[in-house]
Nucleic acid binder design. Sequence first.
DNA 1: CAGGCATACTTAACATGTTAAATGATTTCG
DNA 2: CGAAATCATTTAACATGTTAAGTATGCCTG
Lengths: 150, 150
Amino acid sequence: MSALRDIEHNLPLQLLKAREAAMASFRPMLRKHGLTEQQWRVLRVLSAYPDIDATTLAHRSILLAPSLTRILKHLEQTGYVARLQDPVDQRRATFSLTAAGSSKVARVAPDSEALYRHIEAQFGASNLDSLYRLLNKFSSAVQNGSNANT
Amino acid sequence: MSALRDIEHNLPLQLLKAREAAMASFRPMLRKHGLTEQQWRVLRVLSAYPDIDATTLAHRSILLAPSLTRILKHLEQTGYVARLQDPVDQRRATFSLTAAGSSKVARVAPDSEALYRHIEAQFGASNLDSLYRLLNKFSSAVQNGSNANT
DNA sequence: CAGGCATACTTAACATGTTAAATGATTTCG
DNA sequence: CGAAATCATTTAACATGTTAAGTATGCCTG
C-alpha cells in the first residue's frame, strides 16, 4: 500500500524544525549587525578559508551558485569582500575578506558565541556532540547513494 | 577573546547540510509530480490534519504566514486545496484537501516512501531513530530558552 | 457601547532558493 | 590547429524566506 509515514518521521521537516529553533535566536542577533543569515555564512567561510573561488565557497557555505552571485555582489558593494580575478584561469575569481570584513566578523563573533553557550546550556554539551556526529555521518552516508534519479 | 568556533561546529550549517543531503533526492522526485518542497509539505500536513486553520497549518508545516498565504493561493488555483471561511470567526479560514488533492498525495506517497527506504538503507534504521530522537529533543530544549533578545 | 487592544491573516519590499539557459573561457581530441 | 565538450560564473524567471506594516474582525474593559 505504501501509506504515507507519520509526519513525526518526516526527516527534512524535523531537520528544518531544529534549524528554525536554532535560528530563532541567531537571526535577530545577525539583524542587529545588519547581516542576513547567508551573508554571515559567506563571511564566516571566508574567514576560515581565505582566497577561495566561488565554486568552493558555494560548496562550503551550502549555497547555490545563483544565490552566491547575488550575495557576493552585495558584500562587495558593502565593502566586506574583495574579488580577485584569477590571472591564469580567466573564468575563475577568488574572494577574501577586506579589513572591514574581518573587523565585522570580529564584532559579530562574540554575540554568536554567546548564543552557542546558551544552546549548550539548554541542550547539553554531550547531546550537542552526539548531534554533530550523527549529522555528519548522515550527510556523508546519504550523499553517496544519490543515484536514484534518471 | 571569543574567537569564532570551528566551522564544523556551526550547528545551523550542519543541520542545513544534512537537510540538503536528504532533499537532493526528494526535490527531483517532487518536481516530476509538479510540486515544490513547500507545496508538498502543506499537502502532507493537510492529509494528516484535515480542516485546520492557517495559523496551525503554518506551524505544522514550518512555514511563515506570508509564505503560506502565497502557497495556499497557488494550491487553491491548482484545485488541490479548498478554503472554508469560518462562520463563527470571520477572520479565520480552515483548509482541507479536495478529492484531487487527496489523490495527488496518494500518487506521490509511494515515491516518497521509496526514497525513505533508500535513506534507511544508507544510514541505518538505528542511526535514523537516534537522529529523530535527538532532533526532537533539541527542538523542544532550545525553543523554551529563547529569551535572549531585546 | 465606544475606544483600545489582540488576533488572523494579507500585502509589500527586498533577499534568497531553485531550475534552466546563457555567456565566456579552457580543455580535449581528432 | 580547430570543433566540440567541459567548466566557472552569471542571468532569467518564478517560488519562497523574512521583516514590517496593513486590514479586518473579534474581544475587553470602562
